[in-house]
Design a protein around this nucleic acid. Sequence first.
DNA 1: CGATTTTTGAGGTGCGTGCCTCAAAAAGCT
DNA 2: AGCTTTTTGAGGCACGCACCTCAAAAATCG
Lengths: 338, 338
Amino acid sequence: MRPTTKDLAIAAGVSLATVDRVLNDRSGVREATVKKVNQAIEKLGFIRNMVAANLARGKDYRFLFLLPRGGDQFLAGVLARIEEANLAFAAEMMRAEVRHIHDSDPHQIANLLGGLDADQVDGVAIMAPEFPQVRDAMARLAERGIATVSFISGQISSAPEDFVGIDNRAAGATAGRLMGRFTPLSPGKVLVVAETMHARDSLERRLGFDEVIHADYPHLTVLPSLETYGDPERSARIIRASFASHAGIAGVYVLGPEARVPLEIVTAQPDRATIIAHERTPFTEAALMSGRIDALITQDPGHLVRSAMRILRARCDRREILASQEKIRIEIFIKENL
Amino acid sequence: MRPTTKDLAIAAGVSLATVDRVLNDRSGVREATVKKVNQAIEKLGFIRNMVAANLARGKDYRFLFLLPRGGDQFLAGVLARIEEANLAFAAEMMRAEVRHIHDSDPHQIANLLGGLDADQVDGVAIMAPEFPQVRDAMARLAERGIATVSFISGQISSAPEDFVGIDNRAAGATAGRLMGRFTPLSPGKVLVVAETMHARDSLERRLGFDEVIHADYPHLTVLPSLETYGDPERSARIIRASFASHAGIAGVYVLGPEARVPLEIVTAQPDRATIIAHERTPFTEAALMSGRIDALITQDPGHLVRSAMRILRARCDRREILASQEKIRIEIFIKENL
DNA sequence: CGATTTTTGAGGTGCGTGCCTCAAAAAGCT
DNA sequence: AGCTTTTTGAGGCACGCACCTCAAAAATCG
C-alpha cells in the first residue's frame, strides 16, 4: 500500500496539520520542521495522491487556448482535438476553452492576457506571433500564478520546456532531405510557397530546408519564397508566373497548411514536380492518397493539445513532466503510412 | 459544476443507494427503476467521477505485460517505457508489471494466463506469436473479468480495438515506397533480412514491401528473405554470400530490430546500398545520424505502453477510449527529424 | 386477502487529502 | 522571568463516491 499523509506524519514525528502545511507550502513552519517532513517523504517514498487532493479541494483545472481567428483546416483540426480532449480529460477534472485572437494585434492579446484572473483560469496555451507586449504579458501571468506555454509557434524567449510544438528548422530540414531524395539527380529548381515570411515558423522552415539542399543537393536551386498573404488569387497568379519564368521546376515546398491553390497550379503543369507540404488536413490527406502530394511533414494536433494540457496541469501541481511523452514529433507521412 | 450522484438521485426520484446500485450494476433493482436512473444520467449529462469512485473503493489498477524473454534493444526500450509509465500513471493509481515468456512455448503462456486471478490482476497486454492455446486462454481471461489486449504482435483473432500496435503490412509498404524513391531508377536488387519468416509480423511487412515494389518500382528485384535466426554468425555468412552471388544490390530492407550485423556487412561493400530498417534503438539511431541507415520505420514504444495501459484501464471502467489518441502511428525517421 | 418476496430508502463509515479553528507548546525578546 | 510571537497539534468538516445494514415500502403470489 502506498504511504498516506498519515504515515508521513507519524514518520516525521509531526501532526497531519504540519504535514499539510509543508505539502502545500503554507507559511508558519520552521525550516527544521520542513526538513524533517521532506526527509520522511524521501524515506517513505511518499507520493502525494493528487487525485484525492483535488477531490478534497473541489478543484478543477481550467485552461485557455488562445488561437488565431484564421480558419485554415489545420486550425480547425486543433479545435476539434480540443473538444475531444475535453471529453477525455473530463475524468481528470480538466477542461479547456478556446478564445480567438487577432494574431496581428499584440495589444489585444496583451490586454486579454492581462485581464485573466488566477481564480478563473489555471493555465494558458498561446499561439501567437512574437511581440514584446505578448512576452511581457506572459511573464506577468506567471507572476500571478497562471501557468503558460507557447503553443505551436514558439515565442523566441520561451524556454524549450515551455514550448509545445516542433522544431521548425528541423521540420524544414526534413522536407529538404525528402525533396533531395525524391527528385532526380539532374539540375532543377525548387519553388517555396509560404503564406508570409514574416512568421518565425516560416523563416525557420525555410532555413532548415535550404541548409540541407545546399549541403547535399547542390544540383537543386531553391528559388526565393513566394508569399501568398492568404489570398488565393494572388497565390495562383504568382505561382503561375514562377512556372512561366522558370524552366525545370523539379519540386515545390509548401511551407504552410494551405496547399490547395499551389497544388492546383502545380498539377496542371506538363512536368509533374515533387510536392512536399505541411500538416495533415482532409485536403492534404486526400492529395497524398491520390498521389498529388509526395510527402507531408506534420505534427499531430491531438498530441499538441493533450500535451499542452498535461504540461499546464503539471505546472499547476508543481510536478515534473514525462519528457518523452511530451516531445512533439516531426512526422513524415507518405501514402502508405497515413 | 458537474452533477454528482446526489443530483442524479434527486433527478431520478430515487435514493442514493439506488443510484449506487445502478451505477455499479448490483442486483436488486427493477428494470423500470434502472431506466429512470439512466434517463436522468442522460438528461443531466452525468459523468461519473471515476477518480472519487476509485478513491472510495481503494482500488488501484494492476496490469501485466507479457513479453518475450528475448533481449533486443527494442524490447529493452519497451521495458524502460513501462518503468516510466509506472511513474507517470502512479497518480492515477495504475501500475504495470512485466512477466517474461518463452515465445515459442504456447503451453507455458496459456498456463500463465490460466493462473491469473481477477483480484490480483486487472488487465494483461500480451506480446506473443499466434497459438490457438493462447487465443483460448485470452478468451477465458475475458470471461473471468480480466481485460486483455494484444501488444505489438497482434493475434489474428483479435479485433482491431484489442490490438495495440501498427499495421505491419502498411509498415512494409512504407518501407517499400521509401526504398523505391531513395534508390536510383536503374535496375537493381533488394535484399530482405529477417530474423525469421515464421512470425506473422515479418510476413506482413514483407508482403506490404513487395506489393509496393512490384506495383511501382518494377526495375527493382526483391530477393528471397534471408533468415538470421538471431544468430550473428549465420547472419554475417548469409548476407555476405548474397552480396557475393548477386551483383547490383541497390537496397537492403531489415525487417526486424536487430540491424547491427546486416549494417556492418552492407557498409563494407564497395557500392553503398540504401538501407531501411525498423525500430528506433540506440544503435539504429546512431546509424541513422551517421548516414549508415537511410530511413527507419518505427513505432513509439512509449506510446505503445501508455496506450496499452489506457486501453486496459478503459476496459476495466467499461469506458470508451479516445480512438485518435490510441492509434499507433507508423513513424518514418530520417536523420533530420530524429 | 394475507403472506412472502423483492425493491427501495435512510443513514452511516471510509478512501486520502484540503482547509479551517482553537488551544497548547515552543521559541524569541526584553 | 515574564511577555510576545511563532509553531505546532488535535480535531472536524468537506469532496464524490463505494459499500454496508436495517427497516420500510412495494410488488407478487397463492
